[in-house]
Computed example of a mutant assay.
Amino acid sequence: MRVRLRGINTVRAKLADGTEKVYHYHRATGTKLVGEPGTPEFIRSFQDAVRSTALARSEGTVEWLIWQYRESRAWTELAAKTRESAAYDLKACEERWGSTLLTIVENPRSRPAFLKWHDTLAEKHPKAADAKLGRLARVFAWGVDRGHIRHNPVANFERAYRSDRAEMIWMPEHVAAFEAVASPEIRLAMMLALHTGQRQVDLLTLPWSAWDGTAVTVRSQSKSRRLVYVPATRALKAALDAAPRRATTILVAPRGAAWRKRRFHELWSESFAASKIAEDLHFHDLRGTAVTMLAEAGCTVPEIATITGHSQAHAQKILDRYLARTRTLAESAIAKLDEHRRNRNLQNALQNGGGAKG
């Protein structure tokens, strides 16, 4: 379907050889448009002219600053998935603050207004509220650095969403219960996560070319884009060697196609529900579990961080929480054992007609 663009002037001119040449201009700016009408090149040229008009009209506002930021290297260097979520957050910021003058923003007294907006959003969606104000804070920080504003009113703020899952670890009984009900495709995903400690997004797109028979090489899709080399355990090697190669990616959906994130989440959730695991464990918690497995194998914190991609501080935090939890479990187990023995002795004493022994 051909899109009819408005605001275009068409000019016809006769050339020296008598032929007629047609030129197209963006009416508001007088910008000459390139390409033939209806072609992608022409539409891009028109959109660029429209954007330049909007930029000129919004100069000195938050909307203008956001647009400038989105044309900077700070934006283009973000991972594609990060840009996608950031664009969604910035759209909400534009809708609320787009017309606000930068002279108002840079006044320290503007801070309460931004915090009130954040608090209102956080009443229903605390995590989303943090993401939106956090993204706007990055734009303001970029604006300060580039000299567009003198002060960032939300350089720091109290987060509404708090989630510390450092102590959430998949215990052996959890893994066994999950694998008992999961499909082969889901079980392989768990195996890769447990034995490499990598993020879900990296594992779902991991190609077979990343597996050389002895190790997995992962290019992280996080902003660091770091390359991680993970030698395979015997269990992981056996699983990968036995896995059928039905697509370019190692992990595939039941029908053999690469996973779509939503579909993977659905099947993973179904398997988790069927496992009847009482704890609130997530796929992401397998990364922390991998940290503990490596530690139990004798790896140092720097060695663990090299494989999983955690910072050394966060890896240590996971281990500290894990050790605290296992100590609690051990104490609970001993208490139950003592209670069992006491009850058994009491029962024997009653049967024999004698006194109970401690």
Rank of each mutant, 00 (worst) to 15 (best):
N152P: 03
N352T: 07
A189Q: 08
S58L: 03
Q68A: 11
A122G: 01
A122L: 06
Y229P: 00
V105T: 01
E123L: 12
F272L: 14
G38H: 14
G298Q: 04
A113Q: 06
D285Y: 04
A129C: 05
G35M: 06
A155I: 10
A79Q: 11
L281T: 06
L323M: 08
G354W: 05
R150K: 15
P108A: 07
A243E: 03
T292W: 09
V62R: 00
V175P: 02
F264Q: 00
F140Q: 01
L101C: 01
L15G: 15
A166S: 14
A131F: 05
W259P: 01
D17H: 10
H26T: 05
R255T: 12
Y23H: 13
I250H: 01
V50N: 08
A242D: 13
L90N: 01
Y69P: 00
P302F: 11
E331V: 08
R263M: 07
V50W: 06
E63Q: 11
H282Q: 14
P153E: 02
L206C: 09
V175F: 05
P207I: 10
L281E: 02
S209I: 12
W117M: 06
I307F: 00
I307R: 13
D280Y: 07
A232W: 02
T292M: 14
A247F: 05
T300S: 15
Q351L: 13
R2H: 13
V252I: 15
F46I: 03
G197F: 04
F157N: 07
S110G: 01
V50K: 13
E41A: 15
Y23G: 01
H148M: 11
F272K: 13
R342E: 10
A305Q: 07
I149V: 15
V216Y: 00
A290W: 00
T248S: 12
D338E: 14
D17R: 05
F46G: 03
L33V: 10
A166M: 04
